[in-house]
Every structure is written in C-alpha cells, then in structure tokens.
C-alpha cells in the first residue's frame, strides 16, 4: 500500500532523522521525499510503501502520532489514492 506522509512544524535539527527512524523500525520503505522550509516552517512530503504483511496502517499511524506529540509537529499519513483521484481527470 502506498501512502503519503506530510510533516509540518517549526524547523529544528533531526526531524527527518526521527521520522525515517520510525519508518525503518516498522519496515516502511521511503520511495520519494521532498523537503523545504516555508516561512520558518519545515514541510516534508514522503511517498512510502507499507508492507501490509509486516505493518498495519493503524500501527504506523499511531507511531507517527506519538512522534508528532514528542517533537511538537503535525504529521499526517494518508493513502495515496486520495490525491490522485482529486487532482487527475
């Protein structure tokens, strides 16, 4: 299953490291990533592939929620299709 992770928050050292750490622990592969700083805000988008046999969507969501709280960030994970259907004819 492919999903998009969006991370938005005040920029600080180690955000990408922390997020990719959580993904590694849950065997989630990062297929694409883009990151920028917009008005002091760290904004990162990741396209990931979840191996559903190893990791449940909910499990990953919970792990990212915990990290979001710990680092005071907004982290969303959504299945990729939602963006495809809304923006492609």
């Amino acid at each position: 299953m492919k999903a998009i992770i969006t991370v938005i928050g005040k920029d600080k050292v180690g955000i990408m490291h922390a997020v990719s750490g959580v993904l590694k622990d849950l065997s989630v592969n990062i297929e694409d990533v883009t990151q920028t700083i917009m008005q002091e805000y760290f904004t990162m988008l990741m396209l990931v592939r979840i191996d559903e046999e190893k990791t449940g969507f909910r499990q990953l969501q919970d792990a990212l929620d915990d990290l979001a709280k710990e680092m005071n960030l907004s982290i969303r994970i959504q299945k990729e299709e939602i963006f495809d259907v809304m923006h492609k004819i």
């Binding site: 998009i4 969006t6 694409d32 883009t34 988008l45 396209l47 939602i82 963006f83 809304m86």
Partner: peptide, 12 residues
C-alpha cells in the same frame, strides 16, 4: 515529486 502541490492543496 510531482504531486507536491496537490498534496498541500488537499491538506489545506
């Protein structure tokens, strides 16, 4: 990532 703009628009 080509859908960068679309993702941010949706989240907005």
């Amino acid at each position: 990532m080509t859908i960068y703009k679309d993702v941010l628009e949706t989240i907005h």
